[in-house]
Simulated scan of single mutants.
Amino acid sequence: MLTGLLAWPRGSAGELRRATARFLVAAAAVVRQTIAALAGSAPAGSALPMARRGGLLAEASYTLYQVERHPSAEVDWPGALDAGHHAVGGADSLLRSSPPAEPLSCHRQLTGYADAVAGGYERLAAALRDPKPRCEPPPADPGGWPTDLGLDMYRLSDLRVWLDRLAEDLAQVGDQRR
């Protein structure tokens, strides 16, 4: 607590906002890179380890924030942190269980959906940095997915379920901010 008091004499809320926002921006990069690797043919990239570190810093900031006295929070901090952890943990699991293969025929559609979900993470991060603006609703599944992919249908299903879950996380956190 003494370190926190010296580092943030007015409390850790500002650092929590910044650390969580950075974590969510890193999670957005994870979403994009994971889809690029598993639906396309791009390498996995460095977003995942960077997001893991960002998650640790955001969790540490939240721990310090909890020690301090605060009026009721205007942000669902556990929900925001969970949204980031679901992106990072899901990407890690998908990359381990489904190593990159041939690009999926619906690569562009998946990339568009991933960009929309990642954009939701970035908008939430921006809203956390500035407590005044409201969050926009998260993206909806665009639909119209192919059904004739053979065994690649399993890979498409895994990626869609992950992206759908991330969009639900954003909706839950955003509902409190609207």
Rank of each mutant, 00 (worst) to 15 (best):
87 A>D: 06
31 V>T: 14
111 T>V: 02
21 A>K: 05
30 V>N: 02
12 S>V: 10
145 W>R: 11
27 A>K: 10
42 A>F: 04
19 A>G: 07
26 A>M: 09
27 A>F: 08
100 P>C: 06
69 R>G: 11
117 V>E: 01
13 A>Q: 13
165 R>K: 04
133 P>M: 00
154 Y>T: 09
65 Y>T: 03
33 Q>P: 05
25 V>C: 11
138 P>H: 04
102 E>I: 07
139 P>D: 10
93 S>G: 10
155 R>L: 10
133 P>A: 00
52 R>Y: 12
132 K>V: 07
142 P>F: 03
97 S>F: 03
49 P>S: 09
11 G>E: 04
70 H>N: 13
47 A>P: 01
73 A>P: 11
60 A>S: 15
116 A>I: 01
53 R>P: 01
24 L>Q: 14
108 R>I: 02
43 P>W: 07
54 G>V: 01
10 R>I: 00
5 L>F: 14
28 A>M: 09
176 Q>N: 03
64 L>K: 09
115 D>V: 00
102 E>S: 15
121 Y>W: 08
146 P>G: 12
102 E>P: 04
120 G>S: 04
76 D>K: 04
7 A>H: 09
23 F>K: 08
87 A>W: 01
35 I>H: 04
107 H>S: 12
95 L>E: 12
111 T>G: 10
98 S>C: 08
32 R>F: 00
48 L>W: 05
131 P>Y: 01
152 D>Y: 13
35 I>Q: 06
3 T>N: 13
144 G>I: 05
147 T>Y: 10
62 Y>G: 02
72 S>R: 14
134 R>G: 07
97 S>W: 05
168 E>K: 05
16 L>S: 05
86 H>D: 13
171 A>P: 00
177 R>E: 06
123 R>C: 00
85 H>E: 14
132 K>S: 08
93 S>P: 00
17 R>E: 03
131 P>D: 07
153 M>E: 15
29 A>D: 15
14 G>N: 05
4 G>P: 01
